[in-house]
Amino acid sequence: MKFLEIENMSCGYEKKFLVSDIDISISKGSFVGIIGPNGSGKTTLFKGISGDLKLKSGKISLGNKNLKLFSHKERARNLAVVTQDIESPDITVEDYVLMGRLPYHTGFQFFENEEDLEIAEKYMKLTAVTNMRDKFLSQLSGGERQMVAITKALVQEPELLLLDEPTSHLDIALQIQILNLVQQLNDELGLTVMMIIHDLNLAGEYCDELILMNKGKIKEKGLPEYVLTYSNIEEVYGTVVFTQPNPLSGRPAIFLVSKRILNSISKER
């Protein structure tokens, strides 16, 4: 039995089935990337797992227990979500991070206890956000906000971390910084990570396993070199690409080719 087991799941909004026939099984401690074009159902899949959308059919079990049977708090203790839109209300980084302890509070616990503060401190150190603890979220840059959001998720001490495009709108230095952190969490804490990511190169470089979504279904899943093939990408994205292993890591790397070059190549032939 795998750690996260999704069987024949379908879910979506109103009467439309946005994702269907989803079968995924993930072992504990793996780092799984979800890729696919816009509108292919990646975020909807996440919402099904996180419980934001009710399943129309199928079943999800986490650690051998049906997710439906989890209480709201229990779910939040096992599964943390970092969404794409990190809002910036009038709240300090420290208070925001401490909110990650809410799933552990009983209804009558009014103040954070020593343990809550220690855990928050520990993960703030790990993600290097300690120096911005008194800043308001609205004062942070996009990358800092992403770091803080991940810190809050870690403070939930989950078994499974869902990241929805943690690198969008960030420059390459920040992208690498965030993904290195996620990899470190995966390696050192044994955290199971599922991450939606648009950048196929980063997906191939960092993830142990990839799930390629297309039109609400899983097109391909498996090792990066198995999923990120020329034919899969061309079929799903409708774009011509050129793939070659990264000379350093051996992971698949994808090269985009402009129309002008493609035309000149086909003329030569």
């Binding site: 996180s50 419980g51 934001d52 209480s71 709201h72 708090k73 229990e74 779910r75 939040a76 203790r77 943390a80 979500v81 969404t83 809002e87 209300p89 709240i91 925001y96 909110m99 990650g100 809410l102 799933p103 509070h105 209804g107 009558f108 009014f110 939930q156």
Partner: peptide, 23 residues
Amino acid sequence: YLFIHTLNALRLGEEKARHLGIN
């Protein structure tokens, strides 16, 4: 005051409050 955690979590929005285990 019984709903104090809910109110605090709602500062982040309904969806995020749910992710923190609030019904």
